[in-house]
């Protein structure tokens, strides 16, 4: 399944400063669909190059990170249970405080 992943708000620093990634992810063996829970594990393993604690806490993203699936807060689509489909765009963005 082809997906686009974007990092922003400084999270791109955890993956060699690359903001946009086009990736191919397989649906896990024995599963019918790919959920954000699977995908988060995949991103953690395949894209995050340093300081993973700045991205993940427990089984979800760390506080202060917004997750958007197709420009929509994942809170509205079931968080970790959100089902991903071909060509979906997932954005991880860290909240900014500066001014």
């Amino acid at each position: 399944m082809q997906l686009t992943v974007e990092f922003g708000g400084g999270l791109e620093l955890l993956c060699d400063s690359v903001k946009v990634h086009t990736v191919n992810v397989e649906v896990p063996n024995g599963a019918q669909k790919l959920t954000m829970r699977d995908f988060l594990t995949w991103v953690h393993k395949n894209l995050i190059k340093e300081r993973p604690e700045m991205f993940i806490k427990g089984d979800t993203v760390r506080p202060g990170v917004l997750v958007l699936v197709n420009d929509c807060d994942w809170e509205l689509s079931g968080q970790l249970e959100t089902t991903l489909e071909e060509k979906d765009v997932v954005v991880f963005i860290s909240t900014l405080h500066g001014g």
């Binding site: 700045m54 202060g64 917004l66 860290s94 405080h97 001014g99």
Partner: peptide, 19 residues
């Protein structure tokens, strides 16, 4: 939106990170 504050290392300031 942000019930739990982020770790302090995630709070960059303009005086350190630039703008």
């Amino acid at each position: 939106l942000f019930p739990t504050p982020p770790p302090t290392t995630a709070c960059q300031r303009c005086s350190d990170s630039g703008v």
